[in-house]
Design a protein around this nucleic acid. Structure first.
Length: 591
RNA sequence: GCACCAUUAGCUCAGCUGGAUAGAGCGUCGCCCUCCGGAGGCGAAGGCCGCAGGUUCGACUCCUGCAUGGUGCGCCA
């Protein structure tokens, strides 16, 4: 259920009845001040401007129509006109309570499902097939902090889409191809000849890469071998392919370890590495040449994109094949467009990479659409984000200037969380400590990142994410476990679904709980999980205020009030858990 | 040179398709532990929303110019 949509439908009807054109946006939004009601409709003012009429008079008519139609009877207590044409809507507490009761019986926290195969849920709309391309680490090296954002933002959006009922096809576009693999397999070949086992030799990928690079730069003959191996690999040499496969397998296992630590849902079957597109690349070029979208220029094959010309009319240049005949990531990404819309039947394609690739993906989209690889009705959203910076505002690096391995960063988060928990709770047993420290530490890292929307760079700070105060994962986890503690204490078997809204804190919570669908939809359409982070923080925060103001189990509380508040707690608890689950953050019964 | 992105409180960040008095957290300063878990709550101080114009009933939001920072731009991904 989406309050905003319910109101929009009713107000729209009244606007049409008042003589406004069909399809005028009612512009429903949440009121920012209690005296302006719970929601407000601001669309009349914009419409009045277009029609060059008096907004106040027009709004009066709309309000009259609303009263006449009785559309909002039972939903709103009061509808009033204010200022130049604001329509303020005060929702009925009885109606809110009835919606909460429905929510209590729903398996999806009251969020309507887009597909029909969810029993016991509200059904609505048609589900889409969405291809989501995220994480995509370079398999030549270990995952570092730069891969964190794509991985967790992508996974959160994926889970939000699935929660709403869309069909998601995950695509891990791993970097498993390219010239550096020649040097890596040449080095691996030597190691194996020296009786080493691949798993041991590749235990530390960073070291392995460094060693290979040193040999490539300094050792006589090695660079030539490496280059020869690339050619052999690309022409299908069995021996090279075997070495390459060994290397890839072990590197993938490294990534899977990280995914598991991060509670990210990517599986091996989601991998569609760059190498997968190899057989298709020459066809892509042939088609582009045949349709004259691409032309030969200075030995290379390029597309001149007039749509992206600069002020002087010079087109943007997009190289699709090198002068030596080699392919580039442009070629691969074009091929991926065709595969995803053609084979995977995507209605929408979402790609999460850092902002530096914005230009590239703009070019890919234009060329892919021109070439027919990407039909008009298929959405193509490149979702860029900024780099992770250190406390000094410069790229986040180790003291010596090296890249920070993701595995080490996550381990540190858990150690820091563990220290803090021990400090707060010295009696805790080791097993419980480990479980909580993992959930809290990883959750803190993820929430700190997910809660930021900026496409610009963001500053990574242990201090702010693991102080565990304010808008952090532990605050939300704490709110959740506090509710569980109440349930333990209350020792009730079954919480009722009837809720009476009495105190203002309860009303605020009711409204917030019923806004989940609206938030999920915004997360999906804009690919911005930070909206869900904000929502959950506000929900937890309202709960904390409620907890202080509205006693539940204390002496002297009437049974009906107690039961109503327990029911409210139940909804909050479910919503927090579900919301955090979408973000890939775990909750615990006690902490 | 050209293009893209950013600029909001001391710091880190929100701010939904233009809406009423721009919001949080941290930090600072008060108050609240005979408590249902204080990893908490309540309150205060703190802003020329980078600068200058424009569009309009109304601009942090849209347009133009400028400044600052970042990123990218024919053979890396």
């Amino acid at each position: 259920m989406n309050i905003k949509e319910v109101l929009a439908k009713k107000v729209s009807a009244a606007m049409v009845a008042a003589g406004l054109p069909e399809g005028t946006n009612p512009a429903i939004s949440i009121s920012n001040r209690p005296q302006f009601g719970d929601y407000q409709a601001n669309g009349v003012m914009g419409a009045a401007k277009k029609l060059k009429t008096n907004p106040r008079e027009l709004a009066t008519k709309v309000v009259e129509q609303l009263a006449l139609s009785k559309d909002l009877d039972g939903i709103a207590d009061k509808i009033e006109l204010a200022g130049p044409g604001f329509i303020n809507i005060h929702l009925s507490q009885t109606w809110l309570a009835s919606q909460l009761a429905l929510m209590a019986q729903d398996t999806h926290c009251g969020v309507t499902q887009r597909c029909a195969d969810h029993q016991g849920s509200l059904l609505e709309g048609k589900s889409q097939t969405v291809v989501v391309d995220y994480s995509a680490p370079n398999l030549a090296k270990e995952m570092h902090v730069g891969h964190l954002r794509s991985t967790i933002i992508g996974d959160a959006v994926v889970k939000a889409l699935e929660f709403r009922g869309d069909k998601v096809i995950r695509q891990n576009h791993m970097g498993d191809w390219g010239t550096q693999f020649g040097m890596l397999i040449a080095h691996l070949s030597d190691k194996l000849a020296g009786d080493e086992v691949a798993e041991t030799a590749l235990a530390d990928l960073e070291n392995f890469y460094r060693e290979a690079k040193v040999r490539f730069d300094n050792e006589e003959g090695f660079a030539d071998r490496a280059r020869a191996d690339v050619v052999k690999l690309q022409s299908g040499d069995a021996q090279c392919a075997k070495l390459w496969q060994q290397f890839i397998d072990i590197s993938i296992a490294h990534s899977e370890e990280i995914y598991s630590k991060l509670n990210v849902s990517l599986q091996r079957s989601d991998i569609m590495g760059e190498s997968s597109y190899n057989p298709d690349l020459s066809k892509v070029i042939d088609e582009l040449m045949a349709s004259e979208i691409a032309v030969e220029d200075q030995g290379a094959k390029v597309v001149f994109i007039d749509e992206m010309a600069n002020k002087d009319g010079e087109p943007s240049v997009f190289i699709v094949q090198k002068s030596g005949g080699g392919y580039l990531y442009a070629t691969t990404d074009l091929s991926a467009c065709r595969y995803r819309s053609g084979q995977l039947k995507a209605d929408r394609i979402i790609i999460f990479t850092d902002a530096r690739q914005s230009l590239h993906f703009k070019q890919v989209e234009i060329v892919a659409r021109k070439a027919g690889f990407l039909p008009e009705n298929v959405g193509y959203d490149h979702c860029p984000f900024g780099m992770m910076m250190g406390n000094d505002g410069k790229p986040f690096k180790t003291r010596t200037g090296g890249t920070i391995k993701l595995a080490e960063l996550l381990d540190e988060a858990v150690v820091r969380a563990s220290d803090l928990i021990k400090e707060k709770n010295p009696e805790i047993n080791t097993e419980e400590l480990n479980e909580i420290a993992t959930k809290v530490g990883i959750g803190a890292v993820k929430f700190a990142d997910l809660s930021k929307n900026r496409t610009s760079d963001y500053i990574f700070s242990w201090k702010s994410m693991l102080s565990f105060e304010g808008a952090t994962a532990p605050y939300l986890q704490y709110a959740y476990s506090r509710i569980q503690s109440i349930f333990r204490k209350a020792a009730v078997e079954q919480v009722q679904s009837k809720i009476d809204i009495i105190e203002p804190q309860e009303k605020a919570l009711a409204l917030k709980l019923l806004q989940l669908e609206d938030v999920i939809d915004a997360v999906i359409s804009e690919c911005t999980p930070n909206l869900l982070c904000n929502y959950l923080y506000e929900l937890a925060s309202l709960y904390m205020s409620f907890y202080e103001a509205c006693p539940i189990l204390k002496d002297g509380i009437a049974v009906e009030v107690k039961e109503s508040r327990l029911a409210l707690c139940q909804l909050i608890s479910q919503t927090l858990k579900q919301g955090l689950n979408i973000l890939g953050i775990e909750v615990m019964e006690r902490m």
